[in-house]
Amino acid sequence: MKVDLFDFDLPPERIALRPARPRDAARMLVVEGAEGAMRDCGVRDLPSLLKAGDVLVFNDTRVIPAQLEGRRGEAKIGATLHKRVDLRRWQAFIRNAKRVRAGDLIEFGGGVSAIAEERLPDGSFILAFQGDEPVEVLLERAGRMPLPPYIARKRETDAQDREDYQTMFAAEDGAVAAPTASLHFTPELVAALDDAGVGRETLTLHVGAGTFLPVKADDTDDHAMHSEWGRIEPEVADRLNAARASGGRIIAVGTTSLRLLESATQDDGVIRAFAGDTDIFITPGYQFRAVDGLMTNFHLPKSTLMMLVSALMGRDRMMAAYAHAIANEYRFYSYGDSSLLIP
């Protein structure tokens, strides 16, 4: 399938540089079925848009300050951690990588340094952090929140992003990008969902920096997804299966939750416990097995996530929805507005 099929023009002023305040004040475009009317709603309308017995599935990963600036000798080096290898080693994308060779020491300041152990086939490096302190402690000292490039190119990362780029469900350290659909939730919204009889469950998928990479291939068949580590506990899988058997809908909050749920589900539609890597790539023609809907932000043109939502709702339907969102001045991308997609 040609990647250009998922392209669209987005006015730059539609890219949100800060989240809505309060978080649940964001707008939400509701898209149901193949031909039904689209509705302009708000995130706070979610309890009335769902029904008792439905279950929202959140990703409880916590974003670490995975953006580092350092030096190898006189050369300036940037590093964005992508995926944990073990307790002291991370796979990282390197800026100015031509100045780095295997075995080089990169100094990141604050007493934080790492050896560039190995260059991988995709151009990234394995960084081995030095010393005895946990890597998470080192990153808190030397790292910055890894804002997406479309925000970082327009403004500096600041202290407010430490709070803004973290969901209320964040519990498990390891993500280098936020599961942004969950950024819209507040304790008040969760309480309203509880009152409406809408359930909630959590899983963990440590989102990698590969989520920001453009699809460089001309055809989807030639694109390789980066793998990410995820976990669904057995009791969570059991409760989700029971909810669905009772007539409830499973609504993934974010594409990260959706991809892990689909990775854990076989053709029989039963969600199973999961712990490991997934590189699932969902494009039109995919048969969904685990989810009945998706709450998600608006995605980049020609991105794997634009392909995913097109697989769920149909390409023509999503192109029309995005045209509606642009014409009605919705805010796009990580800090932007939301959509609720119910096939």
Rank of each mutant, 00 (worst) to 15 (best):
Val253Gly: 08
Arg89Asn: 03
Asp4Ser: 15
Lys302Phe: 09
Lys2Ala: 14
Ala217Gly: 13
Met319Gln: 15
Leu46Asn: 04
Phe288Arg: 00
Glu136Leu: 12
Arg27Asn: 10
Val85Ile: 13
Asp279Ile: 00
Met319Gly: 08
Ala97Arg: 15
Met38Asp: 09
Asp9Leu: 11
Leu17Ile: 09
Val31Met: 12
Lys51Gln: 14
Pro234His: 07
Tyr335Gln: 05
Pro284Lys: 09
Asn59Arg: 01
Thr186Arg: 05
Gly314Phe: 09
Thr204Lys: 02
Thr157Lys: 14
Val135Gly: 03
Ala152Trp: 06
Leu5Asn: 15
Thr283Phe: 07
Arg71Ile: 01
Asp161Leu: 04
Glu118Phe: 05
Asp60Thr: 08
Met306Gln: 01
Arg289Pro: 02
Gly269Pro: 01
Gly123Phe: 11
Tyr333Gln: 06
Phe212Asn: 03
Gly197Tyr: 08
Thr167Gly: 06
Ala170Ile: 02
Pro12Gln: 13
Ala178Arg: 09
Met38Glu: 14
Val253Ser: 09
Asn96Ser: 12
Leu147Glu: 06
Ser227Trp: 15
Gly314Gln: 06
Glu156Cys: 10
Thr61Leu: 01
Asn297Thr: 08
Gly103Lys: 04
Ser338Ala: 15
Val3Pro: 14
Ser182Gly: 15
Leu312Ile: 08
Trp229Asp: 09
Ile151Cys: 07
Gly276Pro: 08
Gly174Trp: 08
Leu68Tyr: 07
Arg119Tyr: 04
Arg200Asn: 04
Thr256Gln: 12
Met38Val: 07
Phe274Ala: 00
Ala25Val: 01
Ile115Lys: 15
His324Trp: 12
Ser310Gln: 04
Ser338Glu: 10
Val215Gln: 13
Val112Asp: 03
Ala237Glu: 00
Asn59Pro: 06
His82Gly: 06
Pro22Thr: 02
Val30Lys: 12
Gln166Thr: 06
His324Ser: 07
Phe212Met: 04
Gln266Val: 08
Thr157Leu: 10
Leu205Asn: 07
Ala178Gln: 10
Ala325His: 05
Ala128Leu: 13
Ala252Asn: 03
Asp161Ala: 05
Leu68Asp: 02
Tyr330Leu: 05
Leu17Phe: 10
Val43Ile: 15
Gly199Gln: 10
Glu156Leu: 12
Leu183Asp: 05
Gly210His: 03
Thr283Tyr: 15
Asp292Val: 03
Phe108Glu: 00
Ile280Lys: 00
Phe169Leu: 11
Ile326Phe: 07
Asn96His: 14
Ala25His: 15
Lys154Val: 07
Asp267Asn: 12
Leu193Arg: 05
Val137Met: 12
Arg72Cys: 14
Arg95Asp: 11
Val85Glu: 15
Ile106Ser: 01
Ile77Pro: 11
Leu203Met: 08
Ala171Met: 11
Ala264Cys: 01
Gly123Tyr: 12
Val236Ala: 12
Lys302Trp: 09
His324Val: 05
Ile251Arg: 13
Gly78Cys: 05
Arg141Cys: 03
Leu50Met: 09
Ala321Pro: 02
Ala320Leu: 03
Ala79Gln: 04
Leu127Cys: 07
